[in-house]
């Protein structure tokens, strides 16, 4: 396989973005009280974040992860209040 088609491989990046520890999450608290009212008594520490899925061209998993990390740092996450984990899966 040529170098060019290597670079043209398609990946799906997933960025899981969560409120940092210590940052208030009133949405998580509201979901928590919802779970309590449904008798999920063992439920603890609910946090609500977001999952962002982006399709990219990347030459390798490292390249895809690197792109995803840079996207998070520049736009997808706000480091003041959020932390993120990036994963990548090849789709073509």
């Amino acid at each position: 396989m040529s170098e060019q088609s290597e670079a043209g491989r398609r990946w799906i990046i997933e960025a899981e973005i969560m409120p940092k520890q210590g940052v208030n999450d009133p949405q998580g608290d509201a979901v928590m009280s919802g779970l309590k009212s449904l008798s999920f008594d063992g439920a603890r520490r609910v946090r609500v974040g977001k999952l962002i899925r982006v399709e990219v061209s990347a030459s390798s998993e490292d390249d895809a992860l690197d792109q995803g990390t840079r996207m998070c740092e520049r736009l997808l996450a706000n480091p003041v209040i959020e932390e993120f984990v990036v994963s990548a899966a090849r789709i073509g």
């Binding site: 009133p26 509201a30 003041v80």
Partner: peptide
């Protein structure tokens, strides 16, 4: 968001 001021604004605690 532009880092011209420090910190961030979150959802109101009342939602």
């Amino acid at each position: 968001e532009a880092h011209l001021l420090p910190g961030a604004l979150l959802r109101n605690r009342t939602l």
